[in-house]
Nucleic acid binder design. Structure first.
Length: 160
DNA sequence: GCCAACGTTGGC
DNA sequence: GCCAACGTTGGC
């Protein structure tokens, strides 16, 4: 049982999947598809485990930052959107018998009382080693330490 | 909309 | 296998 939990941060572009959208459906499942980066793929395929807590981060909008909490509910399986010609994440190079891309399902848990913005995380000394505050960090799935995870929850008004 | 950082591609 | 060119991400 006592498998150590790994904590994660995932980024979402609100144009693709917005926080408002998932927050309107409490306990809904989110298909976390469309990741087309090998490093992020490796994390998803190999390391995101059922029950792992996830920080939900909004990128490319006015208030970038962590908006709430989710949890992994289904471990990796092939990302079917890669084979859908009409899909924006269609990848002609991937083979059905040997999938390149994987996805997981998440369950939306709850919104923070307040968004923990990127600027705020950057100005919090305790979070200075977090990946997301580092320059040029573009991975859409990143591991987070428990300490950082708890700190972000605290800033967001959600003591775990 | 700009631009820096980074990942991927492809010529050699 | 190197590296320049190109494309994409994402903060500002």
């Amino acid at each position: 049982m006592a498998v150590k939990k790994q904590y994660w941060l995932i980024k979402s572009d609100p144009e693709t999947l917005s926080f408002d959208e998932v927050n309107a459906r409490p306990n809904s499942t989110i298909d976390w598809n469309g990741v087309r980066n090998y490093q992020a793929r490796n994390f998803m395929r190999d390391e995101l485990k059922k029950g792992d807590p996830v920080l939900f981060y909004h990128s490319q909008c006015k208030d970038t930052g962590v908006v709430g909490l989710a949890e992994v509910v289904r471990e990796s399986y092939p990302d079917h959107t890669a084979w859908d010609k009409k899909h924006r994440y269609y990848d002609p190079k991937t083979d059905k018998d040997n999938p390149t891309w994987y996805m997981v399902d998440l369950k939306w848990k709850k919104a923070f009382k307040r968004t923990v913005t990127l600027a705020e995380m950057k100005s919090t000394p305790a979070l200075k080693s977090m990946r997301v505050v580092q320059r040029g960090q573009r991975l859409s799935v990143q591991p987070v330490t428990k300490k950082d995870f708890d700190q972000v929850c605290k800033l967001g008004g959600e003591n775990q």
